[in-house]
């Protein structure tokens, strides 16, 4: 039976700004005092249920739990789960709830974590649901911004690439809209613009300043953060559209000529061609640091949801 008051992370808005600040504080403490946390989850099991392939997110969850002293079980594609035999998601989740203390789930269908949370008797973490939400990526992004810029307010943030299907984009806009004096520069081809509802119900509703452009360099000198994204092949029904749009933006050293000295360049990874490798040596490139931060914030999240002090 479902326990009372189980906390889940389905959408970044499930957590208050205060709770996110606390998670960032714990993650920072983990970074400086890793040994202190290495047995916090002894005897606990994390199930990683990945109905859609992912390397980074799954491994970072597994690394997070292992670094906390816990154990991990799970699958990395739907083909190796009972889904291939026709089992519903709800049944899979109810079963796995008896095998693990916490579940991190990625699913290609949007809203799948809502279904999972109704059936689970342990906390559910949304590790990405289709083009919808990816809240732990957002927590990773917030930790990275907080560490690199020493603040989460007063920022001009450029979001570039697939703003239509990019779940990391929707989540980070939703999260950053709760901080003061945030301005977004939305850089995308017309076909991959931010959905109207995100503009009306998040940006305009919260009086957030934004500009839409399809020119990557136009506002480069204004940016404190440049968040690049990949055009995701798996989100297109038509391959011709994907091929036409995949190389629309390629960030290279030259395009950074007018950028601020303390610009923070981020990317949820994996990248394909949207960031030229010649940017990697630039001290402003923070995407690998960002990927590493993902482990620490997930450690903090697991501790919070399992109520481990």
């Amino acid at each position: 039976m479902k326990k009372e008051k189980i906390r889940n992370l389905i959408d970044i808005k499930d957590f208050s700004v205060k709770e996110i600040d606390e998670l960032i504080k714990v993650a920072n403490d983990i970074i400086t005092n890793r040994e202190k946390y290495s047995h916090k989850c002894d005897g606990k099991i994390l199930a990683t249920l990945f109905f859609e392939p992912s390397t980074r997110t799954r491994l970072s969850f597994e690394s997070a739990m292992l670094r906390l002293g816990g154990k991990v079980l799970g699958f990395s594609e739907a083909g190796s789960s009972s889904t291939a035999k026709g089992e519903t998601l709800g049944d899979t989740i109810e079963t796995v709830s008896g095998y693990a203390d916490i579940i991190a789930m990625r699913h290609p269908k949007e809203g799948a974590p809502v279904v999972a949370s109704k059936r689970a008797s342990v906390p559910i973490i949304n590790a990405g649901d289709g083009g919808h939400n990816h809240p732990t990526q957002t927590l990773t992004d917030l930790l990275t911004i907080s560490r690199e810029k020493k603040r989460l307010n007063n920022l001009t943030i450029g979001l570039c690439g697939d703003l239509k299907f990019g779940r990391t984009i929707h989540s980070i806009i939703s999260a950053m809209s709760r901080y003061d004096n945030i301005k977004f520069i939305l850089i995308s081809p017309d076909e991959l613009k931010l959905p109207d509802y995100t503009i009306t119900e998040v940006l305009e509703k919260n009086n957030i300043e934004y500009v839409e452009t399809n020119n990557l360099e136009e506002y480069m000198s204004d940016l404190d953060i440049l968040y690049m994204t990949r055009v995701q092949k798996e989100r297109f029904f038509n391959e011709a559209d994907y091929l036409r749009l995949k190389d629309y933006y390629i960030l290279d050293r030259k395009k950074l000529d007018n950028a601020k000295k303390d610009l923070c360049i981020m990317h949820p990874l994996p990248r394909v061609s949207e960031i030229n490798p010649d940017v990697d040596d630039d001290p402003r490139a923070k995407y690998f640091t960002q990927a590493h931060n993902g482990v620490y914030i997930r450690m903090a999240l697991i501790l919070k949801l399992l109520e481990v002090k």
Partner: peptide
């Protein structure tokens, strides 16, 4: 009518 919605595949929902 979102083909990517979980309701498009999950039974008894």
């Amino acid at each position: 009518n979102n083909p990517r919605c979980i309701t498009s595949i999950e039974r008894n929902l």
